[in-house]
């Protein structure tokens, strides 16, 4: 057993303590991201625990998590930094009198301007800077986890804005200069693949694809999340969900839905899957009317199969 393997196994164990069951591929990428100080770009269908990985990592490292939710039209004033505009204006108004005093005694315009030049760009100093998640994560004193969620929803140009941060962990503000990270944050980007990301962004990241887990792994995840579910029921419901995923659905049930379903079955105090029960609770698992209509006729076979195979 090599050192790296040992470290990675340790990482899996630590994540498990936070309630996140990681596959070997996930842990390897996370390990490399820490070692190489590279951001991770996570792709995969919705609900497989992309965002959850960031939460669990932050909890494991005991570092603050800064989360930036991306959406269309997100720009640097919301993501990176903004000037406290109202504060600047207010100060200007309050200091009007002061200004008068300073300029008192100057006989011509040139002298007045000269005197004003002696004061630096007071209004564009760090005091008037309003840090947003990206800048906050760079400024944090002892490292942080930065989660940039659903980067594919942001505009194309926002990606370009991220490049400097992802490559050098620094930000250039035109008025102040370049701010370097005190402690390099661990950056995690997630994408639902609604559009292709630029190659420049991908090049700077380690890439991790999280697919729907295998039955064994999913069973462990359910066990860790909803420990009260009896073993027999857990086996059945995981197998059932796997059967459902094989059908052509509009939206495949993800892990989060499996967990929700397990919770609801637990609330209903049942010990094994029955047809009526599944029919009544299918709306927890499937989110579209068409999907429910598609699965309903197959229920009998699905339950039978879920019961038989391991």
């Amino acid at each position: 057993m090599t050192d790296a393997r040992k470290d990675i196994d340790q990482l899996i164990a630590n994540l498990a303590k936070q309630g996140y069951i990681a596959s070997s591929a996930i842990a390897t990428t996370l390990y490399l991201a820490q070692q190489l100080e590279r951001p991770i770009l996570i792709e995969g269908p919705p609900g497989v625990g992309k965002t959850e990985l960031a939460n669990a990592t932050a909890a494991m490292l005991a570092k603050p998590l800064f989360r930036l939710q991306c959406y269309e039209g997100l720009d640097e004033s919301k993501a990176l930094y903004d000037w406290k505009y109202s504060k600047q204006l207010l100060y200007v108004q309050v200091l009007k009198e002061q200004l008068h005093d300073i300029l008192d005694g100057t006989d011509n315009l040139a002298n007045a301007v000269e005197r004003l030049h002696n004061f630096d760009d007071i209004f564009y100093s760090e005091r008037f800077l309003e840090p947003r998640p990206l800048l906050k994560s760079l400024q944090s004193d002892d490292g942080a986890v930065l989660l940039i969620d659903e980067i594919d929803k942001a505009d194309y140009e926002f990606e370009s804005l991220l490049l400097e941060i992802l490559a050098d962990f620094s930000v250039t503000l035109p008025e102040i200069g370049t701010l370097k990270a005190k402690h390099k944050p661990l950056v995690i980007l997630t994408s639902n693949n609604t559009r292709d990301l630029s190659d420049a962004l991908k090049r700077r990241c380690l890439h991790l694809y999280i697919p729907f887990p295998e039955a064994k792994l999913e069973s462990r995840i359910v066990q860790s999340r909803v420990p009260a579910v009896p073993d027999e029921l857990r086996r059945q419901l995981v197998n059932f969900v796997h059967g459902v995923r094989k059908l052509d659905l509009k939206k495949q049930p993800a892990i989060s839905e499996t967990i929700d379903w397990a919770r609801s079955l637990l609330l209903l105090h049942c010990n094994s899957l029955s047809r009526e029960l599944v029919e009544d609770t299918l709306n927890v698992l499937l989110k579209y009317e068409e999907d429910i209509n598609m699965v309903s006729p197959e229920l009998h076979g699905l339950i039978k199969r879920a019961d038989s195979n391991l």
């Binding site: 591929a25 390897t28 490399l32 292709d196």
Partner: peptide, 23 residues
């Protein structure tokens, strides 16, 4: 350099993360 050649599955996952960037 970090993970070495000795563990093939580890090597595969590690290299995949930095060389394969789409599904």
């Amino acid at each position: 350099a970090t993970i070495g050649y000795s563990d093939p599955s580890l090597l595969r996952d590690g290299l995949a993360s930095c060389l394969a960037k789409t599904v």
